[in-house]
Design a binder for these strands. Structure first.
Lengths: 334, 334
DNA sequence: TACCTATGTGTAACCGGTTACACATCCCAT
DNA sequence: ATGGGATGTGTAACCGGTTACACATAGGTA
């Protein structure tokens, strides 16, 4: 690998000049610039990221901290971010935090030590003070799937409450009279979705707090919650699950109970992960613009890295109801 | 952040001595060692990974190159590797290559420039020469889910052919008389699985090359292949899909065709990704020890990084048949 | 006693970039 | 003519580690 001194020697200039050409900084005569570029090409030279990192420049590396890549929601986030990062010649370090604050802290420590340029974080556990501390230390941070109230933290999140309302309204329109909700764990997005459900169904005459059960955002949780709900209310005819995984769990439970979806019970999920289209019947769901969230997160992280002053607050993206078979009217063999 | 010179000053020794303590290299008097350690603790010192990287040492970073994290097989690989890497204080850069050789080449270029310590690669497209070239340049490489014949390349892969035989035999045992195969794209693992299927079913009197269709390892592919197969042979009663995704596609197609699984048709997949347990009925499949493959890959990559001389060849791990509902005998409402 | 080896530590160069500062021109306004 | 800003380039220090080499001392052996 050629070094900057090799280039400077070949071009007959000093390393400072080569550096100026590379960084488009300071003054360089056009002729000199071309000579340097020619030398760089001739030597197939590429500046060492490590060396520039040490010299205080960017390392062209960002970190993505997520709870668990095995949760099918996160590969979609990761892919969006990786694509976007790639476009800007950034490289992504993947960190699974398992929602373990200790693991998170350790990771952040290591990442700072590696002088990564910024962090995109999707975590239920991290709190505002920790992020503000990072910012103070000069590490740009963008949050996704999580908001931090009025703290000056840039975060991209979807309109959970409105999405939940759309889901509930859709079930009502499809003729459901008794609509249950499988909620996520007590984290922001789950709470907002619950709120949306209550906005629409809370005033119904048939409403009952027993129509809500917690499913922890997992298939198993959705399965168990569904069994629990039907034990309490055998006449439930609509389920709004707080995410698609739990909707799939509900589907399995209903199959177990001998109920037909959508004939006997209609289901709506949230997120629109690929899994929603993999099962039979395909699941009606509220589509989060995950790819767009990833794109925006990365785009803005780069702005922060480049020192642009941008307003740091919660950005809400619109959701969209995607109607599929699980809430369809047609008789169904399942 | 404290530097090595801060530590050396506080401990009253030279930076060389501090470095010796950090790296357990050379001679250091026990007393001195303790003084240095105390100073390090007092200053909350951690050596800069960037600086050691520049000075020719490891960067404690490895890269994982996979085709696409959206393919549900790869999050499982990624998680195993990340866990293991973490345990040894390594950090993982995630690279989606989309099986695009050009993208792969570019990534490898960037990774070399970042002086990563090694690469774990799962790619259908990369060929032996490129890996051997990397090795020559001093970059340790381990392949997973892919083998390179007799080339001195360390790779971890499962026993595809034997697994396929187990799947086919299982279908026969469950009473299937006409067993079709949905094959993957023309890559090594798919070919081996196809071979295993032929080993068992090729000699059956009812065997016919028309019982094989290609499904490209995707749900859509499995779906289309199934429709195609049944158009040719409406009496197929068993399907061995080359992976779980295609098995799920087959499931959807059979539902479409009004066939009941497992009553009319039994299905066996391959891999045992989480999805196999998410659908109804759950899919019988040949379990690849993905986590173990990841563990071994990382473990051996570290050995290579540390310069240990280890035999570099293909390591095959055993598979296991996991019987679930899709090949069960009970009548089924699906 | 003289010499050798093992032990212990410091100095300074080096990894490959960036950049503050110095210095030299050139051109223009006064 | 002259002072001053814009332009152009080089020298050398610096980022924070590693390590070759030099040097000092201690203990053992011939």
């Amino acid at each position: 690998m050629a070094t900057i001194r090799d280039v400077s020697r070949l071009a007959g200039v000093s390393v400072a000049t080569v550096s100026r050409v590379i960084n488009r900084s300071g003054y360089v005569k056009e002729e000199t610039r071309e000579a340097v570029l020619a030398a760089m090409r001739a030597l197939d030279y590429e500046p060492s990221v490590i060396a520039r990192g040490l010299a205080g420049k960017n390392t062209a590396t960002i970190a993505l901290i997520i709870p668990d890549i095995l949760n099918p929601f996160f590969p979609e986030v990761a892919r969006a971010i990786e694509d976007q990062a790639n476009k800007f010649n950034y490289t992504v370090i993947l960190c699974n935090s398992d929602n373990d604050p200790e693991k998170e802290r350790k990771y952040i420590q290591v990442l700072k030590n590696k002088r990564i340029d910024g962090i995109i974080i999707a975590s239920y556990t991290i709190e505002a003070p920790q992020i503000l501390e990072l910012q103070r230390e000069g590490v740009p941070v963008v949050a996704v799937d999580r908001a931090f109230g009025s703290h000056p933290i840039l975060s991209f999140i979807c309109n959970n409450r409105e999405g939940a309302r759309m889901a509930a309204r859709h079930l009502i329109e499809r003729g459901c009279r008794k609509i249950a909700h499988i909620s996520g764990p007590p984290v922001m997005s789950a709470k907002e979705r619950y709120q949306g459900y209550v906005d629409v169904c809370g005033s119904e005459s048939r409403f009952d707090p027993g129509l809500v059960a917690e499913g922890n955002f997992t298939i198993e949780g959705g399965y168990a919650a569904t069994l629990e709900l039907f034990a309490r209310h055998p006449d439930i005819d609509g389920i709004f699950a707080g995410n698609d995984l739990m909707a799939v769990g509900a589907l399995k439970a209903l199959y177990q109970l001998g109920k037909s979806v959508p004939r006997d019970v209609k289901i709506v999920g949230f997120d629109d992960i690929a899994l929603a289209r993999m099962v039979v019947p395909e699941i009606t769901t509220v589509r989060q613009p995950v790819y767009e969230i990833g794109r925006q997160a990365m785009k803005h992280l780069i702005k922060l890295i480049n020192g642009e002053k941008i307003g740091q607050k919660t950005m809400r993206l619109d959701v969209e109801l995607v109607v599929r078979r699980s809430s369809g009217e047609a008789a169904d063999r399942v």
